[in-house]
């Protein structure tokens, strides 16, 4: 299998790239929803994400990527206490996946050959401390959506079945992509995504030509192309690490908090999740830009992606909620 197209080589689509970088800086922002037409680089960007993420340290061989040996679940039956670096997991949740594959189930091999009751972890275990990616998320079956909502809310996956009683942590960043024309997404699931971006094909000829050029180079001169862009990816990765450190020292003036609350109030977004996400996203953004204090400029730049999917749908507003957010940001922040 070919290495995925490098993240830094994606032309344009700055908002989508920024949203993904922000979740990499602060995973608690809670995932990205990418909506847009086909052929706009949605899948490419998500598949490229893995190369961008700083590695995590985890106990070797642990099925849920535990950070310390003490956290390794008993059922894993692990002897080793060695901790090693491994790439941040980015797990693909395919649309047709069965419940068993998602949550984990009886280890069939052990059951059949040795008559042992053992747990075989599923995709949720593998995605712990990493990313769970669902392409065409709007076509996901309802019962899998329910399951994801439940796990995403509790951060824990519970499997109860006939003597198999397993709990394991399942904290992951949810990344979804889809084409809204093909099906709607349940509001409950939309709400789980911290940020949302809408992507469209670039309109300028020059940009589009550049897209084709890079893709062509990737296909025909793969090794050289990867070499050239992997360096850029590494630079972004370093910047993400720096931003993570910077995040801790970032000052958040009270004035900004008032701005955040005012903004969400003016938009009438449901619940408080909007405020929290906006604040976190703005902080991550400030850290990314290497600023020391949060200000209105940061809010202005991330308000769209943090809030546009939280508004009540207004059927008369043809311009879409993105424009509405921009207008109100203009009004509130001046």
């Amino acid at each position: 299998m070919k290495q995925p197209f490098p993240f830094s080589a994606i032309v344009g689509q700055d908002e989508m790239k920024l949203a993904m970088i922000l979740t990499a800086i602060d995973p608690s922002i809670g995932g990205v929803l990418v909506f847009g037409d086909r052929g706009t680089g949605k899948s490419t960007a998500v598949r490229a994400l893995a190369a961008l993420l700083p590695p995590i340290t985890a106990v070797e061989g642990c099925p849920v990527n535990s950070e310390t040996p003490a956290e390794v679940p008993d059922w894993a039956g692990l002897d080793t206490r060695r901790v090693a670096e491994r790439p941040t997991p980015v797990i693909d949740l395919p649309l047709g996946a069965t419940e068993d594959r998602v949550t984990g189930a009886l280890d069939i091999e052990k059951a059949l050959t040795k008559g042992e009751k053992a747990f075989q972890p599923g995709l949720l275990a593998r995605a712990n401390r990493g990313y769970l990616y669902i392409d065409e998320v709007n076509l996901l079956e309802d019962h899998i959506v329910d399951l994801l909502l439940d796990v995403a809310a509790s951060g824990e996956n519970v499997v109860e079945r006939e003597g198999l009683s397993i709990r394991h942590p399942a904290r992951f960043v949810l990344v979804g992509s889809g084409n809204p024309e093909e099906g709607e997404l349940r509001p409950q699931l939309i709400d789980r995504f911290g940020l949302s971006v809408e992507v469209a094909s670039p309109k300028e000829i020059d940009t589009r030509v550049e897209v084709i050029r890079r893709r062509d180079a990737y296909d025909t001169d793969h090794a050289a192309f990867m070499l050239r862009w992997q360096a850029e990816d590494a630079a972004i990765r370093d910047r993400i690490l720096t931003a993570r450190k910077g995040l801790k020292e970032l000052r958040t003036p009270d004035k900004t908090l008032t701005d955040v609350a005012g903004l969400c109030l003016a938009l009438g977004s449901d619940g408080l999740r909007g405020e929290l996400t906006l604040l976190k996203a703005a902080r991550a953004y400030a850290a990314w830009r290497d600023d020391t204090a949060l200000g209105r400029a940061h809010l202005r730049d991330v308000a769209g992606m943090a809030l546009r999917h939280r508004l009540r749908r207004d059927p008369l507003d043809e311009a879409g909620s993105g424009t509405r957010v921009a207008r109100i940001v203009e009004e509130v922040l001046g």
Binding site: R208, V211, I212, D216
Partner: peptide, 25 residues
């Protein structure tokens, strides 16, 4: 050639980036 193909795509209202990639190949 790349520029030409992209311009043709634009003229026919083809938004997806896969189309010109296929055309080039």
């Amino acid at each position: 050639a790349v520029v030409q193909v992209v311009e043709v795509c634009a003229a026919f209202g083809i938004a997806t980036a896969r189309a010109p990639v296929f055309a080039m190949r």
